[in-house]
Design a protein around this nucleic acid. Structure first.
Length: 108
DNA sequence: CTCTTGACCGACG
DNA sequence: CCGTCGGCCAAGA
């Protein structure tokens, strides 16, 4: 018995759990919910429609490859935001992504 | 209920 | 290393 619809809510919640200076991947979020690491699409979809835009720091979420991926405001803006957080960005991707990745599992 | 879309992931060549 | 293909999941029309 699993109620869907709360899926998006979980994503927003997890995004807010991400501290400043750290990042997470769509796959991690999906896995943390138990959706599976391949369900990253649903996560991206949830953030894209992001009704909690200013409430949820979705800019701290990147692809598992370290690439920025996409952003409703523009990938460039996301880059700048992450840079401002103190993350090493290079050519639209994050360096040492693994180093800045946090464990969302257990936070939920 | 069925079809299409999307800020993804992993494997293969 | 880069390009392409298939697979997974949820939301909207």
């Amino acid at each position: 018995m699993k109620k869907i619809g709360s899926f998006r809510k979980q994503v927003y919640k997890l995004c807010q759990k991400v501290p400043k200076g750290k990042v997470t991947t769509y796959g991690e979020i999906a896995a943390a919910m138990g959706v599976g690491p391949l369900g990253g699409r649903a996560v991206g979809n949830a953030l894209n429609k992001n009704p909690y835009a200013p409430v949820v720091p979705c800019h701290r979420v990147v692809k598992s490859t370290g690439v920025i991926g996409g952003f409703a405001h523009g990938t460039s803006a996301k880059e700048e935001l992450l840079k401002a957080e103190g993350l090493p960005i290079a050519d639209h991707k994050i360096e040492d992504l693994k180093k800045y990745l946090i464990c969302l599992k257990g936070c939920l």
